[in-house]
Amino acid sequence: MPREVYHLFSGGKDSSLAALILKKLGYEVKLVTVTFGVLDNWKYAKETAEILGFEHEVVKMPIEILEEAAEMCIKDGRPGRAIQFIHEKALEFIASREYVERVSDGTRRDDRVPFLDIRKARSLEDRFNVAYIRPLLGLGFKTIRELVDDMFVVKEEESEKLEKGDYETELREILRKKGINPRSIFPPRHIQSRVIGLR
C-alpha cells in the first residue's frame, strides 16, 4: 500500500526540494496548493508541479481566513503573524480530510515564519491523527542552496514581482483591495523563488 503524503506546495525552491526528498524516501507525494479565490496564481504552482512530475491539487479555503490574516497585517504593521496564521490553517484544512494520514511542508531549520514549533507540530498531529513531515527541518540555508543549484532552474525576484503560487500573493492583493499598499507592511526587496525547470 503506497504511503501518501499531502504536501503544501507553492512552486518555490523549498517546497519543490521537500517534495523530491519525500519521493526519494518512498512516499507517494500529492502536491496541494491553497487558494482563497482572490487570484489564479495557483497556476504557477501547477506549472512547476508538472515540471517535477507530481500529481497536483488546488484547494480553495474560506476567504474569511484571508480576511482575518489581512486584519492582522494591518494591526501589526508587518506580515509575520498573518503568514503563520494562514500556514497553520492550511495544514489543518488538509489534515482534517478523512483520508489524509500525512501532511508535509517545505519549512526549514532556519525559518521563523511560517514555522510550527514542537508544541504546535504535536498538536497538529494529535488533533487530526496525522503525521506531520518536514523533510527540510534539519537543513540550513547553505545546504539547501547547494541542493537547489544542483537540481533546479530557479527564477528569483522580489516577492511583489514574482509570479508564484503561495498565499502571500493573495494576501498582498486583498490588502490592495482594502486600500493598503503591501509595501508598507511587507519587508522591502524580499526575494522569493519559483522552480521553472530541472537540471
Rank of each mutant, 00 (worst) to 15 (best):
F115P: 00
A90Y: 00
S193Y: 00
K155Q: 12
K142W: 11
L116S: 05
I185L: 05
P182C: 11
M61Q: 08
I94A: 06
P62N: 08
Y6E: 05
L175V: 09
P2R: 13
R183Y: 07
T35N: 12
F128R: 04
N129C: 11
E160I: 05
I65C: 09
G179M: 05
L139Q: 11
L198A: 02
R189A: 10
R102M: 08
E170M: 08
G53M: 10
K43W: 06
R199G: 06
E50S: 14
E160D: 00
R189E: 04
E173W: 02
S104E: 02
Y27C: 09
A95I: 06
E4R: 13
A82H: 05
R172Q: 13
F93Y: 15
I86H: 09
E28T: 09
G106C: 07
S15M: 07
K178A: 01
A49P: 11
P182A: 13
F128S: 01
R97T: 00
D150C: 11
F85Q: 03
E146Y: 14
R127G: 01
E146C: 11
F36N: 03
Y44M: 05
T143K: 13
S159W: 08
L52M: 05
K120E: 15
G179E: 04
I196C: 04
E57V: 11
A95Q: 10
P2N: 14
E92R: 14
I94F: 07
V130H: 03
N41P: 05
D40T: 11
L162R: 01
R102F: 08
A121N: 02
M72V: 14
E50T: 10
C73D: 03
R194S: 09
L124C: 10
R134P: 02
E163T: 00
D126L: 12
F115Q: 03
R172A: 13
L66M: 12
E125L: 02
F152I: 15
I191M: 08
P114S: 02
E173C: 03
R108I: 07
Y27R: 00
L39F: 08
K142V: 09
L20W: 06
E71C: 01
K161T: 04
M151H: 12
V195E: 00
K178M: 06
V130C: 05
V154T: 15
K24S: 14
N129T: 12
I21W: 03
V130L: 02
S159M: 08
L66W: 10
L139F: 14
T143E: 15
A70Y: 09
D166G: 15
T48G: 07
F9Y: 15
H87R: 12
A90C: 09
K142T: 09
Y167R: 01
V100P: 01
I51Y: 02
V59D: 04
S184A: 12
A90M: 12
K155D: 11
G140A: 13
E98S: 14
G37V: 06
L137V: 06
I51T: 13
Q84M: 10
I118N: 01
G77T: 04
N181Y: 03
